[in-house]
Design a binder for these strands. Sequence first.
DNA 1: CGCGGATTTGAATAGTATCAATACAGGTGG
DNA 2: CCACCTGTATTGATACTATTCAAATCCGCG
Lengths: 242, 242
Amino acid sequence: MEERLDVHNSSIPKLCRSCEVRHRGICGALKPEELLELSKYTRRVDYPAGKEISGDSEDVVSYSTIMHGVVKLSKMLEDGRQQVVGLQFAPDLIGRMFSIKNHFTAEAASNIQLCKMPKAALERLIKKNPEIEHKLLEQTLRELDEAREWMVTLGRKTAAEKVACFLYLIATHIDPTYIDGNLENLTFELPLTRADIADFLGLTIETVSRQFTKLRTDGIIEISVGRNICVPDLAKLKERCG
Amino acid sequence: MEERLDVHNSSIPKLCRSCEVRHRGICGALKPEELLELSKYTRRVDYPAGKEISGDSEDVVSYSTIMHGVVKLSKMLEDGRQQVVGLQFAPDLIGRMFSIKNHFTAEAASNIQLCKMPKAALERLIKKNPEIEHKLLEQTLRELDEAREWMVTLGRKTAAEKVACFLYLIATHIDPTYIDGNLENLTFELPLTRADIADFLGLTIETVSRQFTKLRTDGIIEISVGRNICVPDLAKLKERCG
DNA sequence: CGCGGATTTGAATAGTATCAATACAGGTGG
DNA sequence: CCACCTGTATTGATACTATTCAAATCCGCG
């Protein structure tokens, strides 16, 4: 299998050959010649934590595949109240397909790298290869499931449960030491500030902080310097999710 | 335009010819022969308010286009807490595409009629005509936008704002007298019980009831017998949405 | 070392939930 | 036709959770 792929490597663009997410993201649906075509227009871009990628109501000018790091989608009310409506991880595609304007603000939550392509380049490719649209539909359906799952957390869970849910989400999404059923001694760095976490959970930073403290004194998590978290027993954390 | 369509009507299945939502739902993407093919397997089904259409974690066996009425998607926690994660109106397609199992419970909120088709029938058609998948992607993206928009309401709005948002949502989605910019004297019947509304807003029925009373005494809405609501000035209601 | 942003902790308050009682509407049967 | 019953909605009194406001602590960094 690996070898067969290697046979064709000469036709895979140089930039893509080293791409870690190529087979999992939308590029996995591309034929070598399509990948070559698309790669003419793509470029890797780094964003430091906190930098805005695209603003609410701004025109959609490009799409990006997340190479690594966490992207935060949010929406702000006129009076400044803010809600994070989604977190995205590699290899998700960001940018609202088929819409002139964005409906949310996208921002780098951690330091990230994107593989950015012009809006027109991807849309042209989609018209030619419906397989891409299928991949996009599957990602969108998954995001919709996740959004609805999160609505349960926002609408019906207590502050303690919300914070546990959040930690569980992060633990199972970004940690390199987490593989499927591994439940012990997960360690990771939180990709979000307390303010971001509060905006994701519909709480205040004070409440989030208090719940972190409670989880620590209860022995569910260990907090070392900064945002480093250790979860000795993931099952115990899960129990707290309500 | 109308006449040109009529020319081809002979090839349009009898059941579909009278279908009000045909051009707006997924069927709008079908060629006459595909519509004929699909219509062999579809049937109209009525559900009374409150009846379950499909249960959480049950196998997906069919898809349905909503003909009329409101469908409620919800999820329940082990201890009985419930959250409504979406409302769907004609001509939405319900049923989780490409998944063995449902991730949510679907239930008739009002009396509804569905146009039901077996899972395999639609999936076969999708393989042949990618245009359908495009329609589905557009609906899914729209639902995702709406879900995220609602997350702002759930996470960051007060009880008063939540109830106003809900009424605004219903007023702009089900009322036949509402056309685009029409802002005056909208009347409609609430398709949900107070319990459903509470579960949609992440509140209790008592809080919902109190906020209804407040909106009534403030002159924003009029409540006649049962669930009949009149909104004299939609703009005033919108102001209350935060 | 000292500054500024991020986080934690504390005390008082506000907003919702909870519990309990009452009112209302629609349907049933005498 | 009315009394009754049931499910639904409203109203009231109290409890509790999370917010608000305020202050202290921690951390990285020039």
